[in-house]
Computed example of a mutant assay.
Amino acid sequence: MQNWIYILLIILGVYMFISVMLYVLQDYFLFKPEKLPKDFQFYYNNQEIEEYNIDTRDGEVINGLRFKTENPKGVVFYLKGNSKSIKGWGKFAVDFTRHGFDVIMVDYRGFGKSTGRRTQKAVKRDMQVIYNKIKEKVPEKYIILYGRSMGSGFAAKLASMNNPRMLILDAPYYSLSKVAKKYIPFMPLSLLIKFPMPTYKWLKYVNCPIHIIHGTDDRLIPYKTSVKLSKIKPELTKLYTVIGGGHKNLNNFESYHKMLTEIITTRPKKANLEGSSFHVKHASKRANAKA
Rank of each mutant, 00 (worst) to 15 (best):
D95R: 10
G100I: 00
R109L: 00
D95G: 11
M105E: 03
V106Y: 05
T97F: 07
I104R: 00
K121M: 09
T119Y: 10
G112R: 06
F111Y: 15
F96H: 04
Y108R: 01
R118P: 15
M105S: 01
V103M: 05
F92W: 11
G110N: 09
K121G: 09
F92L: 10
G100H: 00
F92H: 12
F101L: 11
F96I: 05
S114N: 14
D107K: 00
D95E: 13
M105H: 02
A122Y: 11
K113H: 04
R98M: 13
R118N: 13
K121V: 09
T97S: 13
F111K: 12
R109N: 02
K121S: 12
F96Q: 09
A93M: 04
F92D: 10
G100L: 00
D95Q: 10
Y108I: 12
S114M: 08
V103L: 08
T97L: 12
F92Y: 12
A122D: 05
T115S: 15
D95Y: 12
F92A: 06
T97A: 09
V103I: 07
T119S: 15
H99N: 13
R117G: 14
G100W: 01
D102P: 07
D107T: 01
D102E: 13
T97W: 02
M105N: 01
S114E: 13
R109F: 01
A93N: 03
T97V: 11
F96R: 03
F101C: 02
R109I: 00
F96N: 05
H99G: 10
